[in-house]
Design a protein around this nucleic acid. Structure first.
Lengths: 349, 349
DNA sequence: AAGAACTTTGGGAACGCTCACAAAATGAAT
DNA sequence: ATTCATTTTGTGAGCGTTCCCAAAGTTCTT
């Protein structure tokens, strides 16, 4: 029994002896349909293999059933082309697709240049054509006020990662400061007294939160300011290598390194290997992202596991809710995990 | 000047003093429009920020401007959850998005279970709703005859990875046997005489091609069959670890390992580290995938670089061509690269 | 038992575009 | 000029839904 893909709502209506509107009510779980009729229609939908046409739905004034994910072209390119372990997109996708699927939504990815003159035109083109119900802005797009404002003015709900204001947005984030406190406590407990932090870009909020928490934690532990060195690695492997080299060449080199993302943690592993330093004996390394790659590195990295998939999943869920006319805006904190693996140990005496 | 997203073709037509059909011709690059008129309309389109509504286009009987990418849920989940470096999806996306963008297409990813009773129903639902112009079947979906057949019967063009039959499909692949010959030649030239191959799953065509080429190459070099050990790692880290342990415990352990994908190459790195074997001095390792992660591992891996992004890009390009009514079916071989890095060296004397 | 008030169903219109074809304008050929 | 062929433009219909409102069928009041 070869099912045709082109079954329409009229086919179902005819088979059920009702009008299309009644069928429409059933497939949209609308009210005011007699249980018996509803059941009959559902059976026919099943039998005929009817699936609503997403384009027609959209034309009929309904939702688009599309969530747009806007990703930075440059970053994606860089990751694709030279970065290590951008499982980030994977995780994001996984979280997003799983959630969307539950509501018959679809996720469309688009590469957009950040902070260029053509950013808005590019987005305008995509949004105009796709008319998504909601948009997920991934870093660094979520930090671009022009862009965020554009969506607001267009009345399109947007979700941001790593922001916590909520308000007119769906914001999903984790407790960055708390995570950093855990990490520093772990290192201090091991006996480290000089710790380096390879920080992400200054424009990225969570990085700033982590940085402040880092400095505060060392201060609270009664260590002098010089105990904590902060270097700007900006999430880049190469930049992190340079910064770390300088740290290790300083008169009082750190015995432990906290990297703001995996790529910079791998840079630390590299620099250590190239200098004959053993991890964790000579240098402890902690990462602040924990994409899957981290678990299998040599040695496996101790890391804060950022709940990326969960964050995107939550973002989708809220956007979908909003598109249904339900409440959905707000700021949502998701739990991270601190996973201690083999890259941290007590410093050598 | 706040551009409204909701500019329609009628708005443009009115502004230009022509009919919607003429505007339609212009935006679709159709023939038979006076150059002057075309130019005038183009200017107005620009000024008004008009973008065709993808749903309306679809309803009008045109293409959907959507390419569907069907990915294995289990594999994606596994990668997401425990694998190392599934930059694969990244690369795929990058290649696909870049190509789609050039033609105002969009790429929609969907997770589908492989080889389950619900595979076809799942696909049927997604395809029925989205009505994509073409479909990219990624492994292992492209090896599922029921699925491939379904798309054929539905008259939806599908692209497969790693197949080379062409015919009713768009097939994109690389010269797997040639790549394997290069790898073995490299290792033999270094002086290796016992080589292990961690093979991918038997159902995956390219893996079989590599395996045959591996055995043939050793044979041609005049080595005894025992010189080449083949173990089934099935692309899994853990499985590869087990297989490799057994190889290394054999009376004549290999001095070089060829892994059929990166994840298994990392497994080799792990096993080596756990046994105190140094790479490349005690064990050479080559991978057959070369996702970005490989470049930054310690040591960086010698690898065949699979042209994943290019393959998906080509697949998209051909599917788009077909959707336009142009020729597009066929088998397309894309060039791989052999990149020698620091994980291969002459075996110890 | 008749109206009021709700529940259930259906019919027309609209969404924004592209088809297929018809009409008008242009140009070439006589 | 007139006809014919060709290029350019416009019109009506339709794609498959949902919206909006009206009609028919219930149930509840009094």
């Amino acid at each position: 029994m070869q099912k045709r893909v082109k079954v329409t709502i009229e086919d179902v209506a005819a088979a059920a002896g009702v009008s299309r509107q009644t069928v429409s009510r059933v497939i949209n779980n609308g009210p005011n349909v007699k249980p018996a009729v509803r059941q009959r229609i559902e059976a026919i939908v099943e039998r005929l293999g009817y699936v609503p046409n997403i384009s027609a739905r959209r034309m009929g004034g309904a939702r688009s059933y599309l969530i747009l994910s806007i990703n930075d072209r440059a970053r994606t390119f860089e990751n694709w082309q030279s970065g290590r372990g951008n499982d980030w997109v994977d995780q994001m996708l996984y979280g997003g697709m799983s959630e969307c699927e539950r509501h018959s939504y679809h996720i469309v990815l688009e590469l957009i240049d950040t902070d260029s003159d053509s950013t808005i035109p590019q987005i305008s083109r995509v949004v105009g054509s796709l008319r998504p119900d909601g948009v997920i802005l991934t870093p660094p797009h979520c930090d671009n006020p022009a862009l965020v404002g554009w969506f607001e003015r267009q009345g399109i709900a947007s979700a941001r990662l790593g922001h916590r204001e909520g308000g007119a947005h769906v914001d999903v984030f984790m407790d960055d400061a708390g995570a950093m406190r855990e990490v520093t406590a772990h290192l201090l407990a091991l006996g480290h007294r000089r710790i380096g932090f390879l920080a992400g870009p200054p424009s990225y909020g969570p990085s700033q939160q982590r940085r402040s928490a880092f400095e505060a934690a060392l201060d609270e532990a009664g260590l002098p300011p010089a105990a904590g060195q902060v270097g700007a690695g900006n999430f880049y492997f190469d930049m992190a290598v340079g910064v770390l080299e300088a740290m290790l060449d300083s008169p009082e080199p750190p015995t432990a390194i906290i990297a703001d993302n995996d790529k910079m943690a791998f840079a630390a592993l590299h620099v250590a290997a190239s200098r004959g330093l053993r991890v964790p004996d000579d240098l402890s390394v902690v990462s602040f992202e924990d994409t899957p790659a981290v678990r299998l590195s040599v040695p496996p990295l101790t890391a804060i596991r950022q709940p990326t998939a969960a964050m995107i999943g939550k973002a989708c869920a809220q956007l979908i809710a909003i598109s249904r006319g339900e409440e959905g805006l707000g700021a949502f904190e998701l739990p991270y995990e601190f996973v201690v693996r083999a890259s941290t140990a007590a410093p050598r005496a």
